[in-house]
């Protein structure tokens, strides 16, 4: 058990160590200037120096991520259930949902800003739009592809339509939904950061990380720019990690994706 744990953790630590060594080595060998590639310790230093800006930026971005993610989760699930419940709604809405999905958010951004103004509202709407479709597409697919044989079991025992939804179709769709959620979680920080760069507010505590990146880059604070990028990575990492944990927690007992071969 413990050795298995170690065997899990050891390879990424070793690879990380090698990468950082290569990093230093490259800077040393090729004489890369600090404004192109700072060393890891310079980045950490710059990060400590800009701590205040980075933390408030991270908080702001996290807030946009949370709002965008949870509204798209709730909205996406409700829409999916509606689509799955009524084949009329499905046929009617789905083409338009796809159409909206095809439209790149980059194109929509100016319109969104026009409607919601600069700031958090627009940023969360952009995040929402980016997260929404993977959730709807996956959940709807899950709800609509219920194993016909399992439906027969429910019908044979005279299940009500409500029981069929609650005890069959929703549990059946759970792995699909969680897969959609994983995709959405990975996209959430991208949405929030992109939202920041187009609709972010410059002043103090309202500046998200995306905006901080823009500012640092225009000020040529390169090590700080790297620090901001790593902070953004950390947010994404935590987000995806939490959703992966949720995926595991909901499915590991019964789903084949967690079947043990040992």
């Amino acid at each position: 058990m413990n050795t298995a744990r170690i065997r899990q953790i050891l390879p990424p630590i070793i690879v990380g160590f090698i990468l950082i060594s290569l990093w230093y080595l490259a800077i040393f060998l090729f004489d890369i200037p600090i404004f192109q590639l700072p060393t890891p310790h310079e980045i950490i230093e710059a990060g400590m120096h800009e701590k205040g800006t980075l933390i408030s930026g991270a908080l702001q971005t996290t807030l946009a991520c949370l709002i965008g993610f949870f509204t798209s989760l709730i909205g996406g699930v409700l829409l999916s259930i509606l689509l799955a419940y009524s084949s009329w709604a499905y046929k009617g809405f789905y083409p338009y949902i796809l159409l909206l999905k095809m439209m790149p958010v980059i194109v929509l951004a100016p319109i969104i800003i026009l409607w919601f103004g600069q700031g958090l509202a627009s940023i969360t709407v952009i995040t929402f739009l980016i997260c929404f479709f993977p959730i709807v597409a996956n959940t709807t697919m899950g709800l609509c592809s219920t194993d016909k044989n399992l439906v027969d079991v429910f019908r044979a025992y005279n299940a009500s339509a409500k029981d069929e939804m609650l005890k069959l179709r929703i549990p059946y769709a759970m792995p699909y939904f969680l897969t959609g959620l994983k995709v959405a979680a990975a996209l959430t920080p991208i949405g929030a950061l992109y939202g920041d760069t187009v609709a972010g507010m410059g002043a103090g505590s309202e500046a998200g990380l995306g905006f901080v990146v823009v500012v640092f880059s225009s000020q040529l604070k390169i090590p700080a720019l790297y620090a901001a990028a790593f902070t953004a990575c950390a947010i994404g990492f935590i987000f995806v990690g939490l959703v992966n944990f949720l995926h595991w927690w909901m499915l590991h007992k019964w789903h084949d994706s967690y079947a043990q071969n040992t």
């Binding site: 005279n158 005890k167 069959l168 549990p171 059946y172």
Partner: peptide, 27 residues
Amino acid sequence: MGVVFQDANLMPWLTVMDNVALPLGLK
């Protein structure tokens, strides 16, 4: 009526216990 289907058709998310109790819950 009780029905036994060709491939067992158990709900993978339910334990043995909950699978057996399923028709009773539906009633």
